[in-house]
């Protein structure tokens, strides 16, 4: 168990080292000549007028909320799928009841316009 995950940890460390080495190698050869104009955010040549971290569309929140519901559903369905042979018909009916509640929720959101992106 520990070996199985430990080797992934080691791979992660190696990948971090490789990435840092590549960046370090670049540090030796690349130029460094910052000028105030160069450090301006890119705005197609137009001067920046208001702060970039301003407002953004609330629809992104709706998508995030939908995601949480359905991703948790996926996590619940994985163990059921793996144990399908053991659970049989009874498990199938229960899972379908669970899925249909969520599908009803999806249909309700659809009807209410939460899925419209205009």
């Amino acid at each position: 168990m520990l070996v199985d995950y430990g080797v992934i940890g080691l791979m992660l460390l190696s990948a971090v080292l490789m990435g840092s080495m590549l960046l370090g190698l670049g540090l030796l050869v690349r130029l460094r000549n910052p000028t105030p104009a160069k450090l301006q955010p890119y705005e197609s040549g137009v001067p920046d007028v208001d702060p970039p971290k301003g407002r953004y569309n609330p629809r992104f929140y709706v998508v995030a909320i939908l995601f949480v519901v359905f991703d948790i559903e996926a996590i619940f369905l994985f163990p059921w799928a793996v144990a399908f042979g053991v659970l049989g018909l009874y498990g199938y009916i229960e899972a379908m009841a669970f899925i249909s509640i969520l599908v009803l929720g999806l249909l309700y959101e659809w009807k209410k316009g939460a899925l419209e992106w205009v």
Binding site: V29, R30, L31, R32, K38, P41
Partner: peptide, 11 residues
């Protein structure tokens, strides 16, 4: 790419 300048914007 390795020899290109690494620009970090001011803000």
């Amino acid at each position: 790419l390795l020899s290109k300048e690494d620009i970090i914007p001011a803000n």
